[in-house]
Amino acid sequence: MSDFEDKHLDFVLKHYQEGRFDTQKAIKSFNEANGIVLKPRRRVLPWVSGIAAAVAVLCIFLFRDNVRQIQLMADTEVQEFVLPDGTEVTLAPGSKLTYSEKSPRMTQLEGMAYFEVARDEAVPFEITSDGVFVKVLGTKFAVDASSSVKEVYVTEGKVLFAKSPDAEGVILTKDMQAAISPEENTPVIAAEPDVNSIAWKRGSFIFDNTPLIEVLETLSEHYKVSFEASDLDKRLSGVFYTEDLDLIICLIESALDIHIVKR
């Protein structure tokens, strides 16, 4: 059975108009109408910076029922780990991943992580977090459980995303994103996935004719700073490395001939 029913396509086609139902435009006019100013958004990861020689404890061992539990963590910087099964995990600052020595493919996540799961048809890889259950065979994806709205973004393969192991879930494939809020039982697939939700892992922001207001929102969320710009109506395309915010600002200013102030 396919859910791609012709009646859906026919309905959409009947009304389709180029450039309409533009979510970013709608957000912009909503913000303007309601006097909402751009400010840093929700994610409250303890993104500490400027601590010289921070001592990062990256791996600790705990015992539960005589089975050794391994806990991996990223302190102030993005950290990469390889699990016993060959799976590669990248943890965002302030995030933790725990698994038991007995079943290293059943993990618990706090915070935000990117996974490149080693393929094993016999043993699915599972991630649980508060209100999140993710199950895969072998694939690449990011899980963001750092705020009350949990998100999954898939870059390769196939991922099952649900609220809990026995709840109904959604299947995500390449470049699909879904989110679940506490009030919902099934994740909702984003009509327009945000490629920059994994900028922290990829090390770059990708903008493609993106309205400046959205560009600044992305940067604002990533670096936890606010911006003011002399002209918000312009659009930006390009790839920018995440390392140097001041350089990004500089490049945008000269590309669009505008002035941006950090707050």
Partner: peptide, 22 residues
């Protein structure tokens, strides 16, 4: 706390428009 209109828009704006179109 916990009101993020950006996400409410991003996930629901286009579906709601299509819902209205019906």
């Amino acid at each position: 706390k916990d009101i993020n209109f950006n996400d409410l828009f991003r996930y629901n704006y286009r579906p709601l428009c299509l819902y209205a179109l019906h």
